[in-house]
Design a protein around this nucleic acid. Sequence first.
DNA 1: GAGATTTGACCACT
DNA 2: AGTGGTCAAATCTC
Length: 335
Amino acid sequence: MERVVEEVIQGRELASQLSKAFANRSLVVNGDDGGSAEGIVNKILGSFVNTLLIINGKESDQKFVSDQIQGNSSGVSGGSTGVSDGRGGGAYSSSWDANHEHAANIKSEDYNEEGISCKSTSTFKDRRGSYKRRTRGPLDGEDPLDQDTKASHSWTRDTPASNIDDSHAWRKYGKKVIHNAKHPRNYFRCTHKYDQACKATKQVQQVQDHPPVFRTTYYGTHTCRDYPKASELVLDCTSPRDSSKYISFDNANCLENKQEHFTSFASSSVKEEPIVKATSDHTVTSHNNHSSPSDYLLSHDDLMAFDSFWPMSEFSSSIDQYDRDDVFLKMIAES
DNA sequence: GAGATTTGACCACT
DNA sequence: AGTGGTCAAATCTC
């Protein structure tokens, strides 16, 4: 828990620095970006994620996530496209793409082997595809705006493995050989596409061989609920005066709620996470027989530290608040 | 038998 | 016409 407190305090201090940085607008300090708004933002993100990783018992993942945050810095600062070709920055990176330059830019020149698995040994008397397909348009119940939504909300993540666990149930529905790419692109949709009309999809493609790097591009947000009560974060609701803040790990909710505060995190089917209750003296109680497997209880004081991470009113970048939130929401979800 | 995967065809877009 | 994304029948796996 001490680590959590340290990270929270550090985050608050960094947020304070950020406010000062924006106040005088002269941001370059000592040649590196440690004192710049950008650098501070990265540190804040890192601190925040570290905190959550500690809470989740995934501290060992810190390095990896930290790398991803660094990779994301260009997106936060609006300095570049946000989608690297796998050679800029770290080996593994995450990037936010608000400008639709994501998958189309995936044109690695480093492919040198075919990694297609061929477990099928079927004897083909195939009639696949031998059907008449109806003219495509908005299907029944399909929102005509889905295409725009999909195009405008994508998120890429580079990982050393193709089968990363992002807490969602995916179903592969296609594989396509991409022009100028040596590795095929795999297409996944949310398992709950039909039963819960979840529109989230992702594409996974190997973009580098040595070391192997798999680029996952997420489209849309999950509206499914794998675990109905799974991911609600109630903040000290026992004390009404504390202006209790409700944190939901549900994407649909987060989209609605995040304008109020940064108190909602993306995703998802969080499984068997312990309750973490942080009281004013920063102690944690964790137990298993709880009503909701991933409830987190934080005191108002602790929450204030998180609130201070995002001085939104003073922050300006090339991506709007929605995007910025979503980047982080997804990042947290995937952590 | 249910759910997941494979894979050729269909369709939209440029 | 070329390309990428998706569909859906066939097949596989548990």
